[in-house]
């Protein structure tokens, strides 16, 4: 730590520019900025010392808490999980398991199909539309991909999967919210599709396909596509986000 602080605090000693003046190390008796603790009279020195102690303790505690938060579950975090969460959550929450322990090795696409009523009142079911393919098309060739293409559906689907049982039963609040969320995203993304009528119900499924083994590898990977099909959902006005009409001709609000 010393080495780094020393380096960071060192005055700019380059030859061709005027050196940055280091604030006076020895306290000037008149006080003022840059005088440090030496430049203070005793009562103020006490206050500064107390502040120093508080800053060191709180700073150390914070780093310790964040460390335990990102560390694997351990003796300390099992004993003090509550205190840790109180300190870290929600604002200092973090997750740096980037592509770890293993990177994702499958492409997960979300498909949707709809049951629509067309102009003459007949009902029909559309084919499956890949919503993820729309995202992919928007990302390809784009130096600045939007979060709406890169994160929105991908993370919403994660959220759904993590808050549901395998037979699609919702776990509490997050489960219910995630259902509504993927529904609204699906309707927003279906808006660009020429479905030719009013959407009454939609159904989603995920198509998971493992990434094929590298050409230079002798491994064999299962690259078949596996589907997880969700139940049909009836679409209500509450499922239509801004910009989506669900094929309804009248404006929503």
């Amino acid at each position: 730590m010393d080495a780094r602080d020393g380096e960071a605090g060192e005055p700019a000693a380059t030859a061709d520019r005027p050196a940055e003046p280091e604030p006076a190390e020895s306290g000037s008796p008149g006080g003022g900025a840059g005088a440090g603790i030496k430049g203070l009279t005793l009562p103020y020195q006490v206050a500064a010392a107390v502040a120093l102690a508080v800053v060191v303790v709180v700073g150390g505690l914070h780093v310790g808490m964040v460390f335990l938060h990102v560390a694997p579950s351990n003796t300390l975090s099992k004993q003090h999980g509550r205190a840790m969460d109180d300190w870290v959550l929600p604002e200092f929450e973090q997750n740096w398991k980037l592509f770890a322990p293993n990177p994702l090795q499958q492409n997960i696409a979300v498909h949707a199909r709809a049951e629509i009523t067309d102009a003459d009142g007949g009902r029909r079911t559309t084919g499956w539309v890949s919503l993820t393919a729309e995202d992919g098309a928007a990302i390809r060739g784009n130096p600045l991909p939007s979060h709406t293409n890169q994160n929105e559906l991908r993370r919403a689907w994660d959220f759904y999967v993590n808050s549901h049982t395998e037979d699609n039963r919702a776990n509490g609040l997050r489960g219910r919210l995630s259902e509504r969320y993927v529904r609204r995203i699906a309707l927003l993304k279906l808006e660009d599709q020429p479905l030719g009528g009013r959407i009454e119900r939609i159904q989603l499924r995920s198509a998971t396909q493992g990434v094929g083994a590298p050409v230079w590898s002798k491994e064999r990977h299962d690259t078949r596509t596996y589907y997880r099909v969700l139940p049909w959902w009836t679409v209500t006005a509450a499922d239509l986000p801004g910009g989506a009409t669900g094929g309804r001709t009248e404006a929503r609000r």
Binding site: G31, G32, A33, G34, A35, G36, I37, G39, L40, T41, Y44, A47, A48, A51
Partner: peptide, 8 residues
């Protein structure tokens, strides 16, 4: 002094 303390 008070300003010096704030600076500290």
């Amino acid at each position: 002094q008070p300003l010096a303390l704030l600076d500290v």
